[in-house]
Write a protein that binds this DNA or RNA. Structure first.
Length: 934
RNA sequence: AGGGCCAUAGCUCAGUUGGUUAGAGCGCUACCUUGACAUGGUAGAGGUCGUAAGUUCGAGUCUUAUUGGCCCUACCA
């Protein structure tokens, strides 16, 4: 014990901590310590259970955007939480080759630098360039992820075109090909003329576009020879795409249509190309729509393709791969679709075959990536029949083998899978997994087969049928989602047994949780589900947490064209990673969107700073005095404030544990937030000051111990969300020999630490302090000026409590002299609270003559006034409070008076309402008394 | 056209199976530099829950209709 403390004077403590928290230094410091210290690697924990997540692999050449920041913050929070809970955790990072996107970027780069297309450069050289580009950029995205603090095991890093995923892709393709699930067929697909590739249905966006119906005359052949009752010699057909008439191979009418059914079997002459095509009857034609006649272009329309199949119509292709017209009609060759359309209309007008035009708006498919109008075209493509896999995926979710959070997302999942279509998996790109199908070049053989081997090996072996050595491989590559669909397997080494063993496949598969956005439920979640179930009969993961999509603060999509994108790295630069992570976590529950406003992050940065300063406050005391070990549950030393804060902490611990397990990151974050601000800083620290600055050393040591205990718990609770500052502060609070916070145990609630009596009293105490402050402000008493206060307290027990707390009360409400009296309960039941008799009983004869007052549900408070003060504002407040209380009281009384209510409502509810009504009744009486006194 | 979602304070959102006086953050107003913190403190103003009807003792919560917004699927020749 030193002299300075015993005199009650606080020694001047050298304060080495800055007044505001500096995230940059701290963040830069901790990531390497965790990473190099192997803290991210799986380690057996106390539960003996595992917890694993596969990271949705970002595009290898991409840049971290807000979606990544959100996705990875939440995954990291889960991983850190489970790690602290004693699970053996594994978070697998990776990167995606992102076929179309990456190829497009590199193609553009080559064009900008060399004015060469990929075809001019050649496939081999082009791929070499992309690989170089990939190698140069991979670290970029990894570094950005590290800035976020992701605790992934980097040794597990996988790129989608690494050997193991390649092996998985080939194995699956070959197996499914041999099973007949993968097949090649002529099919009408969405052709993106800019990408010059087929794209899947899901990659097509329908947008409303202005267009026109063009009504065109198709002359009927040899009509004169017919005894035609209606004397029809032509059909008028409406179309939005006149240029496709070059590819017409029939005209269809509904077989029930009285106007036209007699014409079925006759022929019409297509204008311009003068081709004769049949008139056919097909139910697809809607009698009431358009003119009731439909031109059939099986090569360039999805419905017409189906009609063509039904009627065995020939296919005529009119387009080149670049979307320009081919040589079907030499006069139009090389024209764009739009130019050809204009020219055809002109020509039809000249020939008198153009009937009329009608403006309209209609939906046109656009390529999601290129933005260009998609042309339906027929070509040979590879497909997967997913029917069975889709059904199995649906039942896996229906039987809860995999559960969506929130459950309503399963509707989206089902919407796709309950009516599955064949999945077009070939893409006319170069960057990706080349389709492992080989063709024998011997014209007499023409055999094709699938093999897991590469071209060189196949050439060596020769064609399996004719042994010819001249072999080519299918030039197309697989849809990126084909390899992504195998991600849950290939990241853990599947199907290579050696790799599976090294990566502990058996231990970590199936994975625990998938965290992703709703926009890829079909693209990715469904495909992983289908492909994993098919290959292993197991689900890829047990939970899918669908997080929100980040928007700007007005709810608009972040986009380049709007220029409203928020760069996570800018936010980190400005406010720190922890503040960004807290913002994202606090905005993540089961919501669809997060409308991100940097002002919010600023608010959470302030919270982080608050934590820092709370620490700055308690730290010197902890350094000065050794904390003592306390038996929290059995200690007689605890005072009511300690029991109160311990109970509150306990409640927060309970909420946090439950909320994270249910992916309610918002609840978790906000309950710690309010605990730190509204309980710990505003009250417990304030209440502790007199003790810490006082000279009762035992009391002081005890208080320091509890402050430390609470603060350590706060750090643990916050660590999954704000890892950096918590680790930094832990460094200063941990005991000798304790490891880093990242591997400490997450707090667990303890029922024995719930002291409801103390919570109850503390709440009332807070109510009284607030009421006195309110009174003071209503008459503009300066914060520093101390006042005299008269309290009339309900019940001896509570009166004792308040009297014991009087020094705290005086301190917090700046009271120089406190008078307390018992408020006789009987007076509450008197209708006239102001009667002399009740006043005597309730001690009200002691009410200061000239005073203002306020009531809480358990206490009447009087503040005597000296001098002339305008009390209007105060009286108004009192009246307002009275009106509000009367209204509420009236409502409760009406409810209680309603026999139906007391008969039907649960007893707890009735009791609660009764208690509340009683409290309000007391307050009402007090308010009336006070107003009468004026 | 079919299906789904949403509508709560100026803004962004919570609000569990219907049950006390509908909450939070930001913003706003007034006062205050007090020895953790002005990235602070204290107090306060502000919603009757899009609209209408219904079920119920009781509706922000359930039903129906309606208005407005969003999304998805299909597609209009």
């Amino acid at each position: 014990m030193n002299d300075v403390t015993t005199t009650g004077q606080h020694p001047i403590i050298q304060n080495e901590l800055s007044k505001t928290y500096n995230p940059k230094e701290v963040e830069a410091k901790w990531y390497p310590i965790w990473k190099n210290g192997k803290y991210f690697k799986p380690k057996k924990g106390k539960t003996n259970k595992t917890y694993s997540i596969i990271m949705p692999p970002p595009n290898v050449t991409g840049k971290l955007h807000m979606g990544h920041a959100l996705d990875n913050t939440l995954q990291d929070a889960l991983i850190r939480f489970k790690r602290m809970k004693g699970f053996e955790t594994l978070w697998i990072p990776g990167a995606d080759h992102a076929g179309i996107a990456t190829q497009a970027v590199v193609e553009k780069k080559i064009w900008d630098e060399q004015r060469k297309t990929r075809h001019q450069i050649g496939r081999k050289e082009f791929l070499k360039t992309i690989w170089q580009w990939k190698d140069a950029h991979q670290d970029f995205i990894i570094n950005q992820l590290e800035k976020l603090g992701v605790s992934t095991d980097w040794d597990y890093f996988v790129f989608t075109m690494d050997p193991i995923p390649n092996e998985a892709v080939r194995k699956v393709f070959v197996e499914w090909y041999n099973e007949g699930l993968i097949f090649q067929t002529d099919y009408i697909i969405n052709w993106d003329p800019v990408l010059q590739s087929a794209i899947s249905d899901a990659e097509v966006e329908h947008k409303e576009v202005k267009g026109a119906f063009h009504y065109i005359k198709y002359m009927i052949k040899d009509i004169s020879n017919d005894s035609n009752i209606n004397h029809i010699d032509h059909l008028i057909i409406a179309t939005t795409r006149p240029e496709t008439l070059l590819g017409d191979t029939a005209v269809a009418v509904n077989p029930e249509d009285e106007r036209f059914k007699h014409l079925i079997g006759k022929k019409v002459i297509i204008p311009i190309v003068n081709r004769e095509v049949p008139i056919i009857g097909d139910n697809h034609v809607d009698i009431s729509l358009g003119t009731g006649c439909l031109k059939v272009t099986p090569g360039h329309d999805f419905n017409d393709f189906e009609i063509g199949k039904r009627h065995n119509l020939p296919l005529v292709n009119i387009l080149e791969r670049d979307g320009r017209l081919n040589n079907i009609a030499p006069a139009y060759q090389g024209l764009t679709v739009l130019d050809a359309r204009a020219k055809i209309i002109k020509e039809l007008e000249d020939q008198g075959l153009y009937f009329k035009k009608e403006e309209c708006t209609h939906q046109i498919g656009h390529g999601e990536r290129s933005g260009s109008i998609v042309e339906p075209m027929v070509s040979k493509q590879w497909f997967v029949n997913v029917k069975k896999m889709a059904q199995d995926s649906v039942s896996a979710v229906e039987t809860d083998l995999m559960r969506f959070y929130h459950k309503s997302w399963e509707n989206t999942f089902f919407a796709w899978l309950k009516e599955p279509r064949d999945w077009c998996i070939s893409r006319q790109l170069w960057w990706g997994h080349q389709i492992p199908v080989f063709y024998c070049e011997n014209e007499k053989c023409n055999h094709l087969w699938a093999s897991v081997n590469n071209l060189e090996a196949e050439e060596e072996q020769g064609c399996p049928k004719c042994k010819n050595k001249k072999i080519t491989q299918d030039p197309d590559v697989l849809d990126t989602w084909f390899s992504s669909g195998l991600w849950a397997l290939s990241t853990l080494g599947w199907p290579n047994e050696k790799a599976m063993k090294e990566k502990s496949f058996a231990k970590f598969f199936p994975t625990s949780t998938l965290v992703t956005g709703f926009d890829i439920i079909f693209f990715w979640v469904a495909r992983m589900m289908m492909m994993t179930l098919k290959n292993t009969n197991q689900v890829p993961f047990h939970h899918t947490y669908i997080h929100a999509i980040v928007r700007d603060k007005h709810g608009r999509k972040m986009s380049k064209s709007l220029g409203n994108g928020i760069d996570p790295l800018d936010i980190i630069e400005q406010y720190g990673t922890d503040a960004l992570r807290f913002t994202l976590a606090a905005g993540s529950g089961y919501n669809r969107y997060i409308n991100l406003d940097p002002a919010q992050t600023e608010g959470y940065r302030n919270f982080i700073n608050k934590l820092w300063n709370a620490f700055r406050f308690i730290h010197p005391f902890i350094k000065e005095e050794h904390a003592i070990t306390l038996d929290l549950i059995n200690s007689n030393e605890l005072i009511h404030h300690d029991r109160w804060i311990l109970s509150e902490l306990n409640a927060v611990i309970d909420t946090c544990n439950k909320a994270i397990d249910e992916y309610r990151f918002d609840d978790t974050s906000l309950c710690i937030y309010s605990f730190v601000y509204d309980k710990f800083c505003s009250w417990y620290i304030e209440l502790s000051k007199p003790i810490l600055y006082g000279d009762d050393l035992d009391q002081k040591r005890q208080r320091i111990s509890i402050l430390k205990y609470i603060f350590r718990n706060i750090l643990s609770l916050l660590h999954p969300i704000t890892p950096f500052i918590t680790e930094e502060l832990w460094e200063n609070l941990k005991e000798e020999g304790e490891d880093l916070l990242i591997v400490q145990e997450y707090p667990e609630a303890n029922e024995k630490l719930n002291f409801t009596y103390d919570q109850h009293n503390m709440n009332k105490f807070v109510e009284i302090v607030t009421a006195i402050r309110n009174l003071r402000q209503s008459v503009n008493i300066k914060p520093k000026d101390e006042v005299e206060i008269f309290l009339f307290i309900e019940g001896n027990e509570f009166k004792d409590y308040i009297e014991k707390s009087s020094s705290s009360l005086n301190d917090l409400a700046k009271i120089k002299k406190l008078h307390s009296y018992l408020l006789n309960e009987k007076s509450f039941h008197s209708n006239d609270g102001s009667s002399g008799e009740s006043n005597a009983k309730s001690g009200r004869q002691n009410i200061p003559a000239k005073s203002i007052s306020i009531a809480t549900s358990n206490c009447e408070i009087y503040l005597p006034l000296s001098g002339l003060i305008d009390v209007d504002e105060y009286v108004n407040r009192l009246k307002k409070d009275l009106i509000k209380t009367e209204t509420d009281y009236g409502k409760l009384q009406a409810k209680l008076g309603n026999k139906n209510f007391s008969d039907n409502a649960p007893i707890e509810v009735v009791t609660e309402v009764k208690e509340k009504a009683l409290e309000l009744g007391k307050k009402l009486n007090s308010l009336k008394t006070m107003l009468n006194n004026f």
